[in-house]
Amino acid sequence: MRSLRRRPLLVPVLLCALALLMARPAGAAGDGDGTEGGTDSGLSGQVARLYEDAALATQQYEAGRSEAEAQRVRAQRLEELLDRERRDIAVMRGDLGRIARAQYRDGGGLPLAAQMILADNPEELMRGQHAVWQADLAVNNAITKSRRAEARLAADEAKAAAAWQALDKRNTELAELKQGIEQKLEAARWQLQDQANASVAAGSCRGAVRLDQPPTDLTRAWVAPVERYELSASFGSGGSRWANRHTGQDFAVPIGTPVRTVGAGRVVKVSCGGPFGIEIVIEHQGGYYTHYAHLAAVTVDQGERVATGQWIGQSGTSGNSTGPHLHFEVRVTPESGSAINPVPWLTSRGVPIG
Rank of each mutant, 00 (worst) to 15 (best):
L9F: 07
P25E: 02
A26T: 02
G27T: 06
G30L: 09
T35G: 14
T39W: 13
D40R: 09
G42F: 01
R49I: 06
E52R: 14
A55P: 00
A68C: 12
R72E: 06
V73P: 08
R74F: 09
R77W: 03
R77A: 12
D83P: 01
A90T: 11
M92T: 02
M92R: 15
G109L: 11
A113K: 04
M126K: 11
H130C: 05
V132T: 10
D136L: 14
N141W: 12
A142K: 14
T144P: 07
T144M: 15
R147L: 15
E157R: 15
A160E: 08
A163G: 10
A166L: 14
K169M: 13
T172A: 15
A175N: 03
K178Q: 07
K178N: 07
A187M: 09
R189V: 03
Q191L: 14
S204Y: 09
R206D: 01
D217W: 05
A224I: 04
P225W: 02
E227R: 15
E227C: 05
R228F: 05
A243I: 13
N244V: 09
T247W: 05
Q249D: 01
P254H: 11
I255T: 10
G256C: 06
G256K: 03
P258E: 00
V259Q: 04
T261S: 14
T261Q: 09
V262W: 00
R266D: 00
V270S: 02
F276M: 13
G277D: 00
I282F: 14
I282R: 14
E283R: 15
G286E: 02
Y288I: 09
T290F: 08
H291Q: 07
D301N: 15
V306R: 10
G319S: 03
T322I: 11
F328I: 08
V330C: 08
V330K: 00
G337H: 11
G337S: 08
A339T: 04
N341Y: 00
N341G: 04
P352S: 10
